[in-house]
Design a protein around this nucleic acid. Structure first.
Lengths: 209, 209
DNA sequence: GCAAATTTTGACCGATTGGACAAACGTTAG
DNA sequence: CTAACGTTTGTCCAATCGGTCAAAATTTGC
C-alpha cells in the first residue's frame, strides 16, 4: 500500500488517533462536505494549522478513517464459518451486525454517507475486496442450501437484507426513536430488534420439512 | 399550514417546478450542505439570482421539497388496508415500497440524507405525522395477529425492516450493483429482490399451523 | 544544558459560498 | 402606446472554506 514505513513519533501517533476519533464524530454527523477542518480541530482540542500538521489535507483524514473502518466493518461477515451449524452461524452473524449498529453507530453512518454520495472514494474497495468477500460467503450459504440445511433463497439478497435491517438501527436511529416514542424507543429497542430479526431470518430460513 | 394562498403566476409555477426538480437531483446526490445554489441553478437552466427570485433561501427549496415528498413517500403505508386480506396487503405494500425504491431513488436518498444528519429539518414531522401513521398501522397489524391471520411479531420492527430492506436498493444502490457485478447487477436485480423479500416476509409471516 | 528536531500558533491568502441589490429586460392589460 | 408589473441579469459583499507560512514554543537526543 504505502511506499515505506511511516515511522512516527509518540506524539504523532497519539495526536493522529485523537484527530481520527474527532473526525469520525464530525464526518459521521455532517458528511464529508458538510464537515469543516475547524470543526474537527475543535473536537480534537487543537488549532486548525496544528491539525493540518498531522494530516495535510482534509481528504487524507477521511481516507485514513475509511481504510481503517472497512476492516472492522467487514469482520462479522468474515467470521461467518463454513464449518459451524448454518442456522447458528447466521444467527450470530445477525446478532454481531446488530451489536455493531448499537456500539458503533458513527462508523455505520460514515459508510452510509459515503455510499449515499455514490461511494466516490471507496468504489474500488466495493468492487474488489467487498465483492470478493460477499461472493465467497454467498457460495458458503449456497452450499448450506444444497445440503438442505437451510431453505433455498438468493444468498446475495439475504446478505443485503441483513445489512439493511441491522444498519437501519444505526443509520436511521433518529427516525426509529421518533416513531417508537419515549417509552419503546429507549435502550430496550435493540433487544426488541434482535428478537424480531431472529424470528424473521432464522425462523424463515429453517428448511421446509 | 400557510397563512394565505400563494397566488402565483404561470411562470412562477413552471419555474418553481423546474427548480424543485433540479434541486432533487442535486440535493439527493450531494446532500444539503454539499449542494450549492449555483449547481441547482445550472441544473435548472437559470442564473443564481434568478433562482433566488423564486426561492429566497437555499433552505426554502429543501423545505418545500421535503414537505412535498413526505406525502408521496408515505402513500404506500397509508394504503395498507384493514379490510383486505392481511398477507395480500403486506405483499403489495412491500412491492409498492420496492417499486418506489426503483422508480424514485432520488427521493429515497434525499430522505436518507436528511435522517442521517439527524433530521434537523423534519424532526417534528417524524414525531408527529409519521409516528401517528405508523402507530395506526401497527395497530392494524396487531389486530391481524390477534385474529390469527398472521404470525405474531413486533409490528413496529416489521415496518422498520420493510423500510430498511426496500429502501436499501435505492440508498445503497452503488454498493448493491458493485457487489452483484455486471451480470446480476443489471436491470433484473429488482425482480430478484422482489422474489427474495416476498419469500422472507410473506412466507415468514404465515401463521404457524 | 544545549542544539537539533519536532510541535504549536497567529496571521494570512485565494477560492467558494449564500445572498443582496439595483438596473435592465419582458410581458400584459387598458 | 404605455404604464404597471413581473422577470432576469451583472455586480457586488461578507462570511466561510481549505490550506500556507514563518515564527514561536516545546520536546528530544546527546
Amino acid at each position: 500500500m504505502e511506499g515505506s514505513a511511516p515511522r512516527r513519533t509518540r506524539i504523532q501517533q497519539e495526536k493522529r488517533e485523537l484527530i481520527l476519533e474527532a473526525a469520525l464524530e464530525v464526518f459521521s454527523a455532517n458528511g464529508f462536505r458538510g464537515s469543516t477542518i475547524d470543526q474537527i480541530a475543535e473536537a480534537a482540542g487543537m488549532s486548525k494549522p496544528n491539525l493540518l500538521y498531522y494530516f495535510r489535507r482534509k481528504e487524507d483524514i477521511h481516507e485514513t478513517l475509511m481504510e481503517r473502518l472497512l476492516a472492522t466493518w467487514l469482520a462479522p461477515l468474515r467470521e461467518l464459518d463454513d464449518i459451524g451449524d448454518p442456522l447458528t452461524e447466521l444467527r450470530s452473524y445477525i446478532r454481531r451486525k446488530l451489536e455493531m449498529a448499537r456500539d458503533f453507530p458513527r462508523e455505520s453512518r460514515l459508510f452510509a454517507n459515503e455510499i449515499l454520495q455514490g461511494a466516490p472514494r471507496i468504489m474500488p474497495l466495493l468492487e474488489g475486496e467487498l465483492k470478493t468477500l460477499v461472493d465467497e460467503k454467498a457460495a458458503v450459504i449456497k452450499g448450506w442450501m444444497r445440503a438442505g440445511k437451510i431453505a433455498r433463497t438468493d444468498p446475495w439478497h439475504l446478505i443485503f437484507s441483513i445489512w439493511a435491517t441491522t444498519q437501519h438501527y444505526a443509520d436511521f436511529d433518529v427516525q426509529v426513536r421518533a416513531v417508537l416514542g419515549p417509552n419503546r424507543g429507549g435502550d430496550g429497542r435493540f433487544e426488541d430488534a434482535a428478537r424480531f430479526l431472529e424470528q424473521l431470518f432464522i425462523d424463515g430460513l429453517k428448511p421446509k420439512s
